[in-house]
Write a protein that binds this DNA or RNA. Sequence first.
DNA 1: GAGTGGTCTAGACCACTGA
DNA 2: CAGTGGTCTAGACCACTCG
Lengths: 260, 260
Amino acid sequence: MDLADTLADTPQFSPLYRQIADMLTRSLQAGEWQPGQPIPSEQELAVRYKVSQGTVRKAIDALASSNLLVRRQGKGTYVASHTEATTQFRFLRLTPDSPEPLSARKLAAPATPHEPLARRFLDCRRQRPPAEVAVALGLRGGALAVQVRRLLYFRERPVVLDDLWLPAALFKGLTWERLAAYRGPMYGLFEAEFGVRMIRAEEQIRAVAADAAVATLLESVSGAPLLEVSRIAYTFGDRAVEFRRGLYDTRHHHYRNTLG
Amino acid sequence: MDLADTLADTPQFSPLYRQIADMLTRSLQAGEWQPGQPIPSEQELAVRYKVSQGTVRKAIDALASSNLLVRRQGKGTYVASHTEATTQFRFLRLTPDSPEPLSARKLAAPATPHEPLARRFLDCRRQRPPAEVAVALGLRGGALAVQVRRLLYFRERPVVLDDLWLPAALFKGLTWERLAAYRGPMYGLFEAEFGVRMIRAEEQIRAVAADAAVATLLESVSGAPLLEVSRIAYTFGDRAVEFRRGLYDTRHHHYRNTLG
DNA sequence: GAGTGGTCTAGACCACTGA
DNA sequence: CAGTGGTCTAGACCACTCG
């Protein structure tokens, strides 16, 4: 084994379609095509990049399966957007319990698992983040963060208490008023007004006991078991841009997950 | 709109590669190729089904992405198996907390998230299942189920208490002794000795308080918050073959999930 | 009917594995 | 080296959408 081998244990072979996919990703990141808008047709892109349509196709397949693009047969390929109904609950896995037992609802309409949730914003302020948050977001020195706290309601009852932190540098002008005024999911606001697109997220889930303050906000009792969901959300280039800690009241809701 | 339209709101167009994928699935279900063994090469299958290699390829792609097959470049395509190290933790999402904060472990070795877990089986008995379980498993009349209870240990401490139910008709001869004697994951045993392959599962997660009996088993205290993970696991044809309720002690572990 | 994505083919060549 | 999966091409045709 020589030096070259040692340096190159990451294989540097990259197929054409991967390179095309990377170029498309850069165009998306640069905003060449906007969320909700169509990108050029496969044929056009094949000409632009001087490859066959099949290769462009495979590149688009890759981006579509990471939810960056959405294909619509007969119409075109569109830039994915958090403001669309279909993408609504991609990042919120809490679902109301069905009156029926665990299975048996196979034939029920799985289309809209929720009715729209009401929200109430408690705080929105800039401050120095705790060390854990600074590390998670890669904030150095005294870089500020925006802290947002909010409640989510289902049928007039509080179910989720979220406490989230964003790099202040990326969210200049984010205020309580703008949060409260926006209709639709928060990630839609981030995408539309700050150009920050959440691509994927990692969650860690545990059970904790409600303290007095939390119990009051969730209309529960001190010591009640809650789901604690810690999330780091990433944008292009695996850059962490949100740290979030959610407390879920699971007396009438559950977190759903599919193991493939 | 005529009658044909009314009956056929499910589009009945099925591309060739889908039909091939379905035939391959039936062969897998019938045991024509065994877990861990290679299936015929793409070229052979193309000849057998009288289609091009590209079409076989697309069919295999579909099955590989649902974890039924595993591709190995230069070697062949293999039937996925629960007895292999790579598939080990596909269905167990509980991970020990890392000493570092939530992120920052990006560069750490993500290969083996766990050391092997010790197990202790508490029960294995046949009996009439509770209504909820019977519904979930589609058991009719007085059909029996096998109930298994077990503890999972990490570093000598109990962390998971599982209570699971299986259709007795599919697991004839499953005994405490066989469970205790088997090395490796339980789904490996089910696959190897009963021909039951778990393909996918749905989980519902909530936070609950430990009762006295559970607290004793998990070496915790009554009222301590625990993660309750309810699972229904499915085999070929979306047939439910396992109902499981797990209680996880998350004082030093967490359930991890990726949102894509 | 024109334009889009979706399928299928046939053939060439590349990257990887193991004897 | 032969055999496998992985990539790429060029071209034909199909299914879907919309004006």
